[in-house]
Simulated scan of single mutants.
Amino acid sequence: MVYTRPASVPYPTVWKRFTVRKGGVTSLLRIQDLTEDMHEPALKLMAKYFTRDEPPCKYIGIQNHPVALSELEKLWRNTIKDNLSLVCIKDTDDESPVIVGVNVLTVVCKEDKDVPFQTEDKVWAKLFGAVDLVSRSVNIFERYGVDKYLTAYGLVVEPQWRGCGIGKEILEARIPLCKSLGVKVTATVFTAGASQAVAKKAGFIDLFEITYEELAKKGFIFPGVEKDTKSSKLMALSIE
């Protein structure tokens, strides 16, 4: 089945508010559902910075491969239609919100038809194929005894806002979201050492880890990626 956000969960909902201090200035931020009016700027932020900074994307040079880039953007665009993704914005009354971060989210159900990943584009095959391999390394349904879980296809924080703990806040915002949805687990493949460290601070635990050297032996080669990150991890957070 294709998961549908329950009508009983108000949309949009603000899931978290917090403050950060940067450059001597304190800013109030909020994390809420990504609404349609923010789809394009949020996708633009993902396309600009996730593709530049996420290790596999960075070292395979996805920005130089239009087909793979188009496939990634299509994945994001289709996923945000689920109305489950989160956006972090400055908490003001301005009509044009300042987007600070984005997390593209969806719910995977046990009854979903399992369609093996296939593509004719070699770059996209390496990028998504590597994530697919790691995500399938552990059966989340069996491990946690659930019929659905929340997962992600990318998280990004606008560069000038990095270093303020915003990534951790966005990950923690999954907790009230999951509770409202009746989802007891969130599991994600974290491909960067930095995001893995943030996930750990947010309470995620390691379920599976594979080094990029091992991935290369399986055909998923990202030249130079070890300069940034040694491994890719499947990590999960159980929602109490």
Rank of each mutant, 00 (worst) to 15 (best):
I31N: 02
D37G: 13
G24L: 01
I62S: 00
K16Y: 05
C57W: 00
T35G: 09
I62Y: 00
I62N: 00
L29T: 04
V25H: 07
D33Q: 03
E36I: 14
T35E: 11
I31P: 02
L43I: 12
Y49W: 15
E36M: 14
G61T: 04
V25G: 02
Y59M: 02
I31S: 07
L43M: 14
I31F: 07
T13L: 08
T19G: 09
K16M: 11
E40V: 15
I31Q: 05
T19L: 13
P41W: 08
V20L: 07
I31M: 07
L34P: 02
L43H: 06
F50W: 08
T19Y: 10
K58N: 06
K16Q: 13
L45C: 09
I60S: 03
P41V: 12
K48G: 06
E54W: 06
E40I: 11
V14C: 07
P55K: 03
K58F: 04
K44M: 13
F18K: 00
V25C: 04
K48C: 13
P41F: 10
T19S: 15
Y59F: 15
G61P: 01
S27L: 10
L45G: 08
M46W: 08
C57V: 06
L28H: 12
P56M: 11
Q32A: 12
T26Y: 02
D33H: 09
G61N: 04
G24V: 02
R30I: 09
R52G: 05
V14M: 00
P55Y: 05
E36K: 15
D37S: 15
E40L: 12
T35W: 05
I31L: 08
V20T: 12
T51N: 06
